[in-house]
Amino acid sequence: MSTITQKINFLRIVEIEKIVRESPTVKTFFFADELSAQGKPGQFIMVWIPGYDEVPMSISSTCSDDLVSITVANVGEATRIMHKQEAGGILGIRGPFGNSFSPVKGKALLVGGGTGIAPLVFLAAELAKLKTKLTFLLGAKTKEELIFLSYIKAIISRTKGKINAATEDGSFGHKGVVTELVETTLAKEKFDKIYACGREPMLYKIFELSNMHKISLQMSLERIIRCAIGLCGSCTIGKYRVCADGPVFTSNQLQEVVNEFGKLKRDFNGTKISV
C-alpha cells in the first residue's frame, strides 16, 4: 500500500538520453521518467550521481513522451561529475517534489539570474499557453552565460512580449545586474505577477521592489536539501520547509520569514550562516 508521496520518493535509475551544452559552465540533461514528466514549473527532483552525492535540481522542461530535463551548472563536486557524463550515463531520480509556480493570466514579469533562468523558461512555456503577456528579464555574468536566450526569444515573440538582459561585464544588453532592469521596468509598467528565480540577494531586491509597487510575487528559494519530503529540517527558513512548503514562496510568506530571507541560511550542521 503505497501513497503518492511514497511512489514519487522511490529511486528510479534512468539513462541520460541527450546532453545539451548551454554555456561554458551549464549543461542540460534529458532523460525519460514518467513521474518527473508530470512535474510542474518550480518543482524539483533529487538527482543521485551513483557513488557521489544526491543533489536537488529544478525541472527545466517536460515533454509529452516522458522526456524531462534538468539544467545543471558546474559548481561543485557532484555537478563536476555530472558534467563529465555522456549520453547513456546513469542517474538516480526521485521526485518531483515541492510546490510549483501558479500561472497567472494577464501580464507577467519573469526575472531569472544564472541557472535560475531554467525553471522560469519552463514556466514561460506554460504561461504562453494561457496567452499571458510576458516580460522576461534575465541576468548573467557574461553573454556566454545567458542561457536559453534564443528559446526565450521564440516564446516571447509568440506572446508579443518583451525580453531584456543584463550582463555584469556588459558583453550583452544592459551592463550591470538584472535587478536594475527590474527597477526601471516596474517604474514604467504594471504587472499581475512577478516570478523570480536566482541568487538570494537578487531575490531579496526583487521582493523589496514588488512590495514597493504592490505586485504579487512568487519566487523559488534554495537551501540544503536532504530528505526532500519535509522530515529532516535541513532546508528550513523560519517556520517553513523549502522542500515541502516551497520551494516556491509568495511575498506574504516571505514577509513571515523576513528575519532569515535574504540574510541567513543553514549550514550542513544546521548553524545559521550568512546567505
Binding site: D53, E54, R94, R226, C227, L231, F268, N269
Partner: peptide, 11 residues
Amino acid sequence: RAGYPNPTIVQ
C-alpha cells in the same frame, strides 16, 4: 556535526 553526505534517505 555536519552529518553524512547525500543520499541520506531511501524510500
